[in-house]
Design a protein around this nucleic acid. Sequence first.
DNA 1: AAGTGGTCTAGACCACAAC
DNA 2: TTGTGGTCTAGACCACTTG
Lengths: 253, 253
Amino acid sequence: MNSPLHAYTETGTPSFSPLYQQIKALILQSLQAGEWKPGEPIPSEMELAARFRVSQGTVRKAIDELAAENLVVRRQGKGTFVATHAEHNVQYRFLKLVPDSGDFAAKGPAERTIVDCRRQRATADVARALALRTGDPVLQVRRVLAYASVPTILEDLWLPGIPFKGLTAERLRASRGPMYAMFEMEFGTRMVRAEEKIRAVLPDEAQAALLHVTQATPLLSVERVALTYNDVPMELRRGLYRTDTHHYRNELG
Amino acid sequence: MNSPLHAYTETGTPSFSPLYQQIKALILQSLQAGEWKPGEPIPSEMELAARFRVSQGTVRKAIDELAAENLVVRRQGKGTFVATHAEHNVQYRFLKLVPDSGDFAAKGPAERTIVDCRRQRATADVARALALRTGDPVLQVRRVLAYASVPTILEDLWLPGIPFKGLTAERLRASRGPMYAMFEMEFGTRMVRAEEKIRAVLPDEAQAALLHVTQATPLLSVERVALTYNDVPMELRRGLYRTDTHHYRNELG
DNA sequence: AAGTGGTCTAGACCACAAC
DNA sequence: TTGTGGTCTAGACCACTTG
């Protein structure tokens, strides 16, 4: 294994991939298989180097990329750990709505209300987003997040029925931290990245009522598809955000 | 220079910074000083290693970070180049509005109309965003972008008067590619990163007229502060986006 | 003191582009 | 052929954490 393995594309063209990419893929497989759970340490660089018969530097470069993708967290002197949504410092990593008055003050967790939670059959658009077939079982949840008693976010979310079998309104209400942290613990599904489509819309009657606004109030519509390892979609979420005291914050590199 | 230099914080606590960070800072200074212009190659890794009396690996790690921040682009076999907004593949890097029907079709450049361009004195909020003082000279531009003859984006932007002395509506109309590319060429100012605050709003009368919508049409309000090297703000831009046929696309890592 | 990740070096070789 | 960035190795030492 001292020289890169060869991979061949469908056309027969030989295509190489660097050793460290192959190592990265192997580590990824172990992460995906749950060999190491979120929050737990993965083997040390020396151990992995020995296991894969490569130098420490090669393992290091593989882990560097995994860390850059937030799949893994390095801690000097301690080890490298499987990333998790449960860590206090990076909670609500995917929520970009922040209060206008700096990020603080209302930083305390929002008041959460589960409005609805029911098993359904996937409509065409939900099925497409979740890579299911129309009619497949899905779980639909509607909830409201309030800050300082002001309802600010209304979310509808759809989860594939199979992996989330057993999820109920009670379990949602019972769980404390971020929803994605609970998904990791209870269902072994870790959301790794997400894509959002944002629009400005007016709410329908029900939506306006739940957010305590009039139907003439413009709201941010945020449609998110959250993905696990290997870009498998595991959640469709449609959020309506009030932006009178908050805004969606984005950094462009 | 074989061992890291020492830096001392105000409290006297010795604080180290890795050699490659120091090298990175030195390269950044040269970029900022315009020693190498956008699109031009910077010296090879070997040359830089010799200049700074460090190993190639250390220079490499410094450049790796600069490349990750899009300040520089590596091209195997050719060299490392100062990044630019003029490259065809990464044009409109900061514009996240895409047509609902995939990214294609309307990919051709938008039809641009300069509505207004005038010298002004900075109001309090503009001054704060641009790190100026209230009353300092600024340049204000208003323009409309249309796709397939449908006005879709209305932008007001403010530029600090000093560095953009000589910018007129004529020069804006005359320039071809992205505005930021022109800023690089004509004014030596390269926008490196940006922060956006997004809200849902209703347009005022003038805005609605320019976008050919009613005042009841919800629009995306995108306030952007664009920064040069060292996080110096060089542009405030307030955009109104129609999101009936387009959406703001965001990826969450 | 021992183990972990983090930095730095020196040298070899590979892949790509240009002459 | 030459020069560029890209990969890989081996070994040394540093910084941080834990026992």
